[in-house]
Design a protein around this nucleic acid. Structure first.
Ligand SMILES: [Mn+2]
Ligand SMILES: [Mn+2]
Ligand SMILES: [Mn+2]
Ligand SMILES: [Mn+2]
Lengths: 218, 218
DNA sequence: AACAATTTTTAGACTAATCTAAAAATTGTT
DNA sequence: AACAATTTTTAGATTAGTCTAAAAATTGTT
């Protein structure tokens, strides 16, 4: 078993690696974990010794298959717990991330699998992120940003880029939640704000900042 | 907030204090936490500095009201999580203790209260132990041991003294589970074993060891 | 190619929690 | 009351994870 701290490093590296193809830098890891580069160097040397990642001095790190497996297991647990908190305990989607950060470190394969079953094998968490299955696979839909949609196009709100509570609370208040259908009425060339219609009913304005943080399924 | 380790010490001291009136000894704590007396001395000095217990050199420790509150909070979380695992996730009563040992350290008042509500405010955990409420109070029924019951008496199985998985599995197999009504048919003077009837139906034999580990509600 | 800026590593120190071994205090027995 | 046995505390070390400051390597710019 891996320590709480080791697990957090592996998940952070996995998330950084997700976007880019290159090795993950020491500073990038330090930033994402709110720690110092020196601490990161120590830890990646330790994780390298356990064959969870490949580390070359001054070259950054890449997870091994073993490291990736651990990280995906953590993502699976994190997203299942978030789903439990929202679907069963009636937390709102802006309240669950920090709790899931704790719960994802509970050690038990059986627990996570039974939780998965109890929740009805959900495919997505409360933020629209895909939930990895037992075998580590997860379905990734092709989503586009709201800002990329042309006028007159239709799509369904299916995810968020920014996961901050303040953004999620704003979306909730505007009823910009998962599953809502959106029609683009007008794109303002000046400030990139948009007029959109929700569920063929209410018409609202959203800023460019909002438009570039909403993921849509066409 | 208190560390994982501090919490474990507080709960262990609380449990040891429950039975006896006197101060809890260093060795008793060391035994119950599988650690060394020297480590216990260090930690109780630290907890004393935080006013969670009263420590006098060579005299043992007693929890303060603050320390007691923390410990009861942990017991509440432990027993609610056990109830969740059995009632919702379909674990058996012999499987949940170790998992609850992890889950009881998740930090969130709101989570435990919502879990309580989700479970329908249960009064007892899967082993018959009372679940403390938000205010720290818990109802304690007067229970007696099966071995103390006279012949021809009736009572309901309401708790266990020994919580070990092997004992719980044995009880399950014999259908000696919570809620079953028991009639004492005969007490064997030689080996203290007993003949009992379950739910006015099946008749079985239980050893003295079993009889002194089953708690009954008259 | 040389130098400056940035990134990364190393060296050394700190904290929380633990241990062993030895010293000190308490308890039990004669 | 004296001494032995037991319990508890102290002293000093260890491990995981972290930090700051300084050294080393890499990258960017002229
Ligand atoms: Mn999250
Ligand atoms: Mn999420
Ligand atoms: Mn338990
Ligand atoms: Mn229990």
């Amino acid at each position: 078993m891996y320590s709480f701290t080791e697990e957090n490093y592996l998940k952070a590296i996995y998330k950084l690696q997700e976007r880019q193809e290159e090795a993950v830098s020491t500073n990038a890891i330090a930033d994402s974990l709110n720690t110092r580069a020196a601490s990161v160097t120590d830890m990646v040397q330790k994780l390298s010794g356990k064959s969870l990642l490949i580390y070359e001095k001054y070259k950054g790190v890449v997870l091994t298959e073993a490291g990736r497996k651990v990280a995906i297991g953590l993502v699976r647990k994190h997203r299942l717990w978030e789903t439990f908190l929202v679907d069963k305990l009636r937390f709102t989607w802006d309240e669950v991330h920090e709790l899931a950060e704790q719960l994802e470190h509970i050690k038990s394969e059986e627990l996570v699998d039974k939780l998965d079953e109890f929740l009805g094998f959900p495919k997505h968490d409360p933020h629209g992120d895909p939930i990895p299955q037992q075998d580590g696979k997860m379905l990734s839909q092709a989503l586009i940003l709201l800002e990329q949609m042309p006028e007159k196009a239709f799509a369904i709100i299916s995810g968020v880029v920014n996961h901050s509570p303040v953004f999620l609370q704003y979306l909730q208040k505007q009823n910009l939640v998962l599953g809502i259908s959106v029609e683009v009425l007008e794109k303002n060339a000046f400030d990139k704000s948009m007029s959109i219609r929700l569920n063929a009913e209410k018409e609202i304005q959203v800023s460019a900042e909002v438009a570039r943080n909403l993921l849509m399924k066409v």
